[in-house]
């Protein structure tokens, strides 16, 4: 089963699922409020789109099923293999760091969060630790100057502001 599962099939399924989800969600949308036509209702456009999406998903699915999966190229297993390389670990750490940034910035404030984020990222990207500390500081100063001072954007204040 897993062997037969190739990328095209996964794309197909990934199109059909949100398509169906949209169709379910739009059932609770009101009919066109201001006028009496179905066409002008808020559900019309999303419904059309999700139907196209489902059709395209089915086409992909068909292509995937018909295709011979013996050649490893395009198989899901092959794609998963890539993820276990050390470089991919760096990638995953980077993604987690961005997620951490989003979660923390309004609590810790711009300076602390950005500093931690940059330092940890640079460090992971194999910059010597004291250089990371310094580079992060310079970056922060530049960003602060441009965004907060020149463009007067109020960056999230936290425990340090």
């Amino acid at each position: 089963m897993f062997k037969r599962l190739n990328v095209e099939i996964v794309i197909g399924l990934l199109c059909i699922a949100p398509g169906i989800l949209v169709l379910i969600l739009t059932r609770s949308f009101p009919a066109g409020a201001a006028s009496n036509m179905q066409l002008s209702g808020p559900a019309f456009f999303p419904n059309v789109l999700s139907i196209i999406l489902i059709i395209m998903g089915l086409l992909q699915l068909g292509q995937g099923i018909l295709r011979k999966t013996e050649n490893a190229e395009g198989s899901v297993r092959n794609a998963l293999k890539v993820l276990s390389r050390p470089a991919s670990v760096t990638l995953i750490i980077t993604i987690l760091l961005i997620a951490f940034y989003i979660a923390a910035v309004e609590r810790l404030g711009f300076f602390v969060t950005s500093y931690l984020f940059l330092f940890l990222l640079l460090w992971r990207l194999k910059v010597v630790w004291w250089k990371s500390l310094l580079t992060a500081l310079i970056f922060l100063a530049v960003i602060y100057l441009i965004f907060a001072k020149v463009f007067m954007i109020s960056l999230p204040a936290g425990i340090l502001m």
Binding site: L108, V112, G158, I159, L160
Partner: peptide, 8 residues
Amino acid sequence: LVFGGLFA
């Protein structure tokens, strides 16, 4: 760094 912030 973190605690310095908290004290402030």
